[in-house]
Amino acid sequence: MAAGRTALVELGRGARGVTSAQSWPLKFQIGARTLFSIRRRLVRVPLELRDVLSGDAPALPPLPPGADGWSVTSLPEPLVDAMLSTSPIAFVRQRYTRYHTDLTIGFDAWFAGLSGNARSGLKRKAKKLAEANEGSLDVRTYRTAQELAEFHGIARQVAERTYQEKLLGAGLPNDIAFRAAMQGRGTRGEAFGWLLFVGGSPIAYLYCPMTGGDVRYDYVGHDPAWSEWSPGSVLHMEAFRTLFDEPAAQRFDFTEGEGQHKRQFATGGTACADLLLLRGSLGNRATVKALRAFDGGVERAKRARDWPVLGKAMHRLRRG
């Protein structure tokens, strides 16, 4: 689709229409823990869900002086080989399924499509949280600019305690630009915020912007003290009740990466890959060589994690 390709070309362009590159960390990770990273100046080309489902190859914007290459994320697998041939140094960083949920089928049909174990598990967890809150779930939805401003302040109380923020630096942002963008989306009816309370205290949050009918799974977190109660899953189920009743919401985009929760809640998925397409410099060649060696070592360690001693050591390292 031409519209999808045009949108991708615009990504990474500065205010005067010149393609810009950002200093981006290429992380050497084991699980959620980053051991170290190497920075490269990259033009990012992230495919949105509509682009992934279209099956069209993205048009790469021109590289500005000093840029090392492109970072292409969520490229559908059938397009990978052709895209790899476009650059002197090409590297598949990760492969995964990009999951989504059809929000036009209705909540009852979606819930019935879950496995029996998933349905009973969600009902049991929701009942347990309701009992902890004097018999009913306290889930609040925030849509308008004013409501989202309130949501942000409360959600930040939860975000400060989450592993997403402490370990990954990926909690709900607290900068002025993010808050302004969130409220702007609220004014246009293009954002959803949800909070789960127990005893009047917030224990989980979910924030999702919406673009062209696609609701994006952007920021989520829960108080680790409530982890055994699965508040995130219960909150997401209740958020889906809202979305299935929202005519403007067409699909839920679980974005990049795998996860049991995504597989469980999704109605479809597309096999994708993240690519690094780099200029043929010595520094870039050394970087990719190091990444290949490290990722290969991690894969070998994963295969050996059932070994009693090594398995325990890998688990401690992955969790930090």
Rank of each mutant, 00 (worst) to 15 (best):
S227H: 12
E190R: 04
H236V: 13
A204T: 07
A290Q: 12
V234Y: 03
G221E: 08
A266F: 04
L235M: 08
A273P: 04
Y207F: 15
R305G: 00
L235Q: 07
S230V: 03
R285K: 13
Q250V: 06
A181Y: 12
Q183K: 07
F192Y: 15
A304L: 15
L195E: 14
L243K: 06
K302P: 02
S201M: 13
Y217E: 06
F294Q: 07
Q183H: 01
A225Y: 05
D306P: 00
T267G: 01
A313V: 10
W226F: 13
G268H: 07
R303Y: 08
S227V: 03
G268Y: 05
S230C: 09
F197Y: 15
F192W: 09
L276Q: 03
E190I: 02
I203M: 12
K302S: 03
R285H: 10
S230W: 13
H222W: 09
A293V: 13
E256R: 12
D274G: 05
Y219E: 03
R241Q: 12
T287H: 10
K302E: 15
G297R: 07
L278H: 04
A290V: 09
L275E: 01
G221V: 06
S201I: 06
A273F: 13
L276G: 00
D223C: 04
L235P: 04
D253A: 04
A273C: 15
D253H: 02
A204G: 13
P202A: 14
R300F: 02
G200N: 08
E258W: 09
M237G: 04
C272L: 10
G213K: 00
M182C: 01
A239W: 00
T187L: 08
F197A: 05
A290M: 11
V298T: 14
G212A: 12
G259L: 06
S281W: 00
G257S: 00
R251G: 01
D306C: 08
H261P: 08
G297P: 12
F294G: 10
L277F: 05
V309I: 12
G184H: 13
T242G: 07
K302H: 09
T267F: 02
T287A: 15
S281G: 05
A239S: 03
R263I: 11
G212W: 11
F265E: 04
E238N: 13
Q183V: 05
S281P: 01
H222L: 06
D214Y: 07
A191Y: 07
D253W: 02
W194L: 03
P224G: 11
K312I: 02
A313L: 14
A290N: 09
R241A: 06
T287N: 07
P224Q: 06
G199A: 06
L195P: 05
G189W: 05
P209R: 09
L276W: 01
G186R: 02
S281Y: 01
L243Q: 06
G186V: 13
P202R: 13
A271Y: 06
G283C: 06
G221Q: 10
A249L: 05
T287L: 15
A293N: 06
K262V: 10
G221R: 05
F294C: 08
T287I: 08
D218E: 14
P247F: 11
A286G: 09
T255I: 15
G259W: 11
L282N: 10
G199L: 11
K312F: 00
E190N: 03
R292S: 15
Q250R: 15
G213W: 02
G297H: 10
K262H: 02
L276K: 03
A204P: 15
E299R: 14
E190V: 03
W226Q: 10
